[in-house]
Design a binder for these strands. Sequence first.
RNA 1: GCGGCGGUAGUCUAGCCUGGACUAGGACGCCGGCCUGCCAAGCCGGAGGUCCCGGGUUCAAAUCCCGGCCGCCGCACCA
Length: 586
Amino acid sequence: MGVFGLSDVYEKISELARRRGFFWPSYEIYGGVAGFYDYGPYGVLLKNRIVEKWRDFFVRRHQDYVVEIETPIVAPSIVFEASGHVEHFTDPIVSCLKCGRRFRADHLVEEALGVSVEGLSLEDLGKIIRDNNVRCPFDGGELGDVKVFNLLFKTQIGPYEGDVGYLRPELAQGMFVAFKRVLESMRSRLPIGIAQIGRVGRNEISPRQAMVRLREFTIMEMEYFIDAEDPQGNCPFFDEMAGKRLRIQSYTMRVKGGEPQWFTLEEAVESKIIVDKCLGYWMAIGQEFMESIGVPAEHMFFMEKGPHERAHYSSQTFDQVVKVSRWGLIEVAGHSYRGSYDMMRHAAYSKADLTVFKPYKEPILVKKKRVIVDKSVIGRLFRDKAGEVLEALQAARPEDIEGYLTGGGHTIKVGGFEVPRDAVKIIEVEEKEWGRKILPNVVEPSFGVDRVVYVAFEYAYREREGRVVLAFPRDIAPVQAAVFPLVENDESLIAEARSLYKTLVREGFQVIYDDTGSIGRRYARADEIGVPAAFTVDYQTLEDKTVTMRDRDTWRQVRLPADNVVEALRKFLKGEPLDSLGTPFK
RNA sequence: GCGGCGGUAGUCUAGCCUGGACUAGGACGCCGGCCUGCCAAGCCGGAGGUCCCGGGUUCAAAUCCCGGCCGCCGCACCA
C-alpha cells in the first residue's frame, strides 16, 4: 500500500512501461546512469500528445496574447550570471583532505556547532570551519577550502576554454533574452505570453524517483509579461475562469498544519491568497490541464512556498502538486510571480533597453523643468573637460540644480566640477507625454513534462479481471484505434481489416493492426497500451459492410457501417459515448 | 553523499546460505505453423541469457570476498 490510501503501483508501472515500450532508464547496456530516462515508441506518442495538449491549453486558446518560441539549450555564461544562476544555483561543499569524501559545508557546520549559517559567504564558512576545527565526520581528517558545487552543467563554446557555456536549467532566460525581438514582432503590445517547450539540464547531486527527478528533462513553460501598474488590462480572460474552484494551501495555512482549502479563483485573488490575477488565472488553466490528463481535482492542490523555499527571483510561488501512490505529493508545475527581477538584471548586464512603451489613450500635458546651459561659458571655462561637464549637467536631476540656484550659492557642484551659476538656468516647459516606459513584470507557469507523463500513466493504470488496462483520457492515448480481423486465417476478413486500417492511417490516426492470436488476446494487448477504440471486421462485414467498435473502458461493443468509422472515431476521441455511435452488439 | 536491502532471457522468477552433475530450470510474453464466428483458449515448432561490471579466492564461482555501477527504502539534497 502506498500513501494516501492509493495502492502502490510504482513497480507495476515501471515493469509495464519497460515491457511495452513507454519509458526506461537510459544507457542500460552500459549499466545505466542515474537521472536519465529514454522514451520508447509508445512513450513518445504519449508525451507528444501531452505536450500538444499543453500547447492547446496555454498557447492555442490564447493565441491573441500568447506565442511560442524556441531558443538554444546552451547559453554563454553571461546569461546565467545575469539570471543569478551562476551565483545562486549552488551548494557549498568541502572535501576531507584525508579520505576525499565530500560534504555540504553549511550542514556540517550546523551539525557540528549547532548554529545557523544561512546566508554566509564561502569565506565565512571556511573561517568558521578553521576557527572551530571542524573535522571530517568519518575519519577526523582535515577539511579543505569551502567550494561551491554548481548544479549547472558547464561546457565550452568553441575552442577557447575562456568561452564558458552552460546548459540551461530552465527555459525562462531564453524568453527574457529574446523578449525585445518577440515583442517587436508581435507589434509591441502588453500583455504578452511567450511560451517554450524544451530540454533543460540540472546536474543533481543524487537524482532519484525514476522520471520524477531527472538530470535532463523537458519543460513546458510560459513567461507572461504584464504591466504591474495596469492590473485591469493584464488578464483579459480572467472572467472566463473566475468561478473555477482551486484547492490552495497558503504558506500560513501550511505552517499552522492546515489542510488545503477550496476557493474560487476570484475569491483567492480578492482575498490576496494569490497575489496576482494573472498568476491565479494560469493556475486555474494549469488545474484544468491536469484534470484533462486524468487527475481528479481532489487529488491535486496548490502549495505555496515559504520565503526561504522560493527561488531567488520569486516573490510568490505555488507548487502544483499531485498525489501519487509511491512518493506522496509530487510537483508537476511551479507557478511563480517573478516580478521584474530577470528583466532588470538582463537590462543591466546587456545594457539593452528592455522597457515597453505603453501609450496613453490621450497624450497628457506634463510640466517639466529643463536645464538650459550657456555652452559658450562652459567651453571657455573648462576647455577640454567641457564635454564631461555638459554631460554631467544633463545627467543631473533638474530639481537638484534648481536647489543650488535657489540656495544662493555661487557655484553648482556636479560630477566633481564646479559650474558658475550664471551659466545655468532652469526653465519650465509643457510637454505632451504619449505614454510611459515600463519594465514588465512576469508571471510564470512551468510544467515538468516527464512528471506529467508519469502522473498520466499512474492515473491511467487499472486492473480488471486480472488484465491491465491503461485508461488514458481518450485524447492523450498514444494509439487511438486498433483494427482486427475476427480470426487470423481468413483472407477476406484480413483484406477488409487491412483496408479499414489504411483508411484510418490516411485520415491521420495512430492505429495498430493485429491479426495474430485469438481476438481476446488482441483486445487485451490493445488495452495494455491504452488504445481507446478497437474495430473488428467479422463475417457480417462481408455481407453488409458493418464492423464492431469496442470501448476499452467498458468492453462493450456497438456495430456501425465501416464508412462511418472515421467520423465515429473522431467523435469518440472527443468524448462522445460509445452508444451514440452505433447499434448495440451482443 | 551516508546507511540498509537488492540486481539471473522481453517480463516475473528458481538456483546463491551449504561452490562442482547448471550445457542456468520454470512461467508469462514474443516469433512461425495448425486451429479458432468476439475478450490473454488449445496443439506443434522456434528464437531469446555479458547470471549488473571489474578484480580476487579456488582445481572449479550465478553461488564466497573486495571495489564499482544501477535500483528501491531511510537520512541528507531538490535555486
